[in-house]
Structures are given as C-alpha cells and as structure tokens.
C-alpha cells in the first residue's frame, strides 16, 4: 500500500509541474527547456528557508514561489518580444546557469552532494489537494479571457496581434503562471523527498514534461494529466524495462507526433458538459471523443 501511495504522490507532484508546462507549451506554444530550473528554485528556496532560517512552511513556500516568479520576470523580459525560439534557447541557458550556481554555492545549497535535512511534510493528501487546486485554477484560466488570448497567440501570432492582443504581455503572463506553478511543484517535491540535488533539475526533466503535454493532446489539460499518469506510471509497472525508459518514451512520442499530431485527446476536455453528453447519448459522444 505504501508503495502505491508513494508512486501516487510522486505522480501528483508531477501533475502540478506538468500543468504549469501545459499553460506555457500547450496553450501558448512556447517551449521552456529550463522549466525544471524553476522547480529547482522553488525546491531549494523553500528548503533553505526552512532548514537554515527556521521559517515556517506557510511563509517559506509563498516566498519560494515569489522568488521564482521574479527570476522568471528577468528571464522572460528580453525574450517575450522576440520570436518563440528565443525563449527555448534562453531558458536552456538559464537551466545550465542554475545548475552551475547550485553546484558552486556549496555553503548555501550543499553543492553537488545536495541539500539534506528538509522535513518531510508533503503527504498524499497535500499532494492531491494541491494537484486538484492547480488543475482547477488552470482550467479556469484556460476558459478565461487570458486563456483564450494565449490560444490565439499559439495558433497565429500575427493574427492575434492584428486583433489587438498584446502578444508580449500574454506570453509573459503565461510564462509567469507556468513558472509559479512549477516552483510550487518544486516546494512539494523538496518536502516530499526531503533531499534535493542539482542533477534532478536538468533539461531532460523539462523535456519530459513537454513530451507529456504533447503526448496527451496539444490543447487538452485532461490529456496532459492523463498522459502524466500513463507516462510516469508506466515505468513503475514495467520495472524490468527501467533502463529502456527514455527510449520507449521517445519512440512512443515520435509515433504520436507522426501519426496523430494532436496527441491522445487532441483538444478534447473533460468538462461537466461533456460528461452529461456522455451519459445522454453514449454512442454519439464516443464518436465525438475520437474526433
């Protein structure tokens, strides 16, 4: 039982981070290859504030998220005005810089041997409530004015601009929301594993999140969450395939991109309306789901 609750907690923490990536990549079409670095900022800041300065968690977590957002503002500022390639290149450099910083600032971060002694506070319940809250908030965001602006920017930046959408602003909002959510995921993570080290936050992790979002469906939060469960649950079920994990991932995703580019669920969302329809006309709804 405890093994299952352990796996479930980890998946729920990943759901939090992937929801952040969904806002940025799925909705706005920007790719951050340094997203895991923001998770590192969340994890390290909250961890250091609690272990070294004896702050209560209720202060440390918001402080960590706030710091990540501030850093995100600095990273985002030069890039949101430029074409989208820049944000992925800049965030990739940012990730490397953060890893270097964490490795070098040994007195504060513990260097390569990691930050230890973080109290274990994240329970399955907290992880579940956090994931549920984050997912709910993001689904609200998606249907809000800003959410629709994000989708417009992703589909066609020029057209969005000509419709009077302030493109840099929308990009910045999406970026900062994703940074805040991912940093919160970092707090959850640090206080669950009680130990963090710089190797956990390389670009591979950011890439994995992007892959999860695309695997689930470009514009479907439901799909992203589903694929998080599938893709992070799969290696646990198939433990004997552990070393092939990256390769299986990659092949799966290449297949999806080549033959079903809109991902598992495409744009389909699990909303009350859809559920109702599911019960009303089971056959018709099936057909629509496949759409």
């Amino acid at each position: 039982m405890s093994l299952y609750s352990h796996i479930l907690t980890q998946i729920l923490i990943t759901v939090v981070s992937v929801s952040g990536v969904f806002v940025l990549t799925g909705m706005t079409g920007m790719f951050s290859l340094g997203q895991a670095a923001f998770m590192a900022i969340g994890a390290y800041t909250s961890g250091i504030l609690v272990t070294k300065l004896a702050m209560p968690i209720i202060v440390a977590w918001p402080a960590a998220v706030l710091l990540a957002v501030l850093v995100g503002l600095i990273v985002g500022l030069p890039t949101v005005r430029l074409r989208r390639d820049y944000i992925s290149l800049v965030t990739l450099g940012f990730g490397e810089a953060i890893t270097a910083l964490l490795n070098r600032a040994t007195t504060i971060t513990g260097g390569a041997s990691g930050l230890t002694g973080i109290p274990k506070r994240t329970t399955l319940l907290i992880a579940f409530v956090s994931a549920a809250a984050v997912v709910t908030l993001i689904s609200f965001f998606k249907s809000s004015k800003y959410g629709r602006q994000c989708i417009a920017v992703r589909s066609d930046e020029l057209a969005a601009k000509s419709m009077g959408i302030n493109v840099p602003r929308v990009k910045m909002i999406a970026f900062l929301i994703s940074v805040a959510v991912t940093a919160y995921g970092g707090c959850l993570y640090a206080f669950y594993t009680a130990y963090v080290d710089p190797t956990l936050f390389g670009w591979q992790r950011s890439a994995e999140w992007i892959i999860m979002v695309f695997f689930g469906g470009v514009n479907s939060l439901t799909g992203s969450i589903l694929s998080t469960f599938v893709l992070s649950g799969l290696p646990e079920v198939l433990r004997f395939l552990q070393s092939y994990r990256a390769i299986i991932y990659a092949v799966l995703v290449l297949l999806v991109i080549n033959f079903r580019p809109s991902g598992m669920l495409g744009e389909w969302e699990l909303t009350p309306k859809h559920i109702k329809r599911l019960f009303k006309r089971p056959k018709g709804a099936r057909a629509q789901e496949v759409d």
Binding site: G29, F31, I210, Y244, A246, I247, Y249, A250, I257, P261
Partner: peptide, 27 residues
Amino acid sequence: RRILTHNTSPVYFFVSSITLGTLYEGI
C-alpha cells in the same frame, strides 16, 4: 519528414527534436 509533408504546425518540429535528443541520449 511527415511534419513537413503534412504541413503540420512548426511547433511539432520542437517536440520532435527534443524527443529525438532524448532518444539519442537514451541509446
């Protein structure tokens, strides 16, 4: 190739290349 011939959104080039990178590194 398929993204190119099917004229799918260029966003997929990103995802493809990231995935391809993961594949090479995994090997």
